[in-house]
Amino acid sequence: MPNGEHQTALEPHHGAGRYVAVWVALCALTVGTLLASRLSLGPPWHLLVALAIAAAKAGLVALFFMHLWDQPGVNRLVFATSLVFVALLIGLVLLDSATRFPLANPPNERTLRFEPPSFETHVQPGEREQGEPGAIGRPPARE
């Protein structure tokens, strides 16, 4: 005898029309994302728009083709949990790259953005004017 978890009624069974409607929506969204990419929205919008449309499509597939809409909560929970960890991994690793000491990233076009203050404080222009390049052994004349 199963316990309470199995006591849900048979899942509702929808007609085939619903699947076709979802398919039409998916195709429309694909055309949409293609058109949006032609618009040259520029960063970061082109990325956000494309990912938002992809997420919408993925949502449709998961909810209707994969029946998450009808099924017991635990399956939804499993899927949602996996997405939380996807966001966690990508988010924190990206954050690291974005806030690192700039030279600790590989040489790239973005090295200069997101400079932490530690890097700014390195050597200011004019500070070394008194000495030879990279004056060593003598603190720069300052204040």
């Binding site: 966690l88 954050l95 000491f101 932490p116 530690s118």
Partner: peptide, 22 residues
């Protein structure tokens, strides 16, 4: 346990900000 992996990277060139979070 999933939120703490970065504490293995404190000396590896990870950002100071991430080090604080982890």
């Amino acid at each position: 346990g999933f939120f703490t992996w970065g504490h293995h990277l404190f000396t590896s060139g990870q950002s100071t900000f991430d080090a604080g979070i982890f």
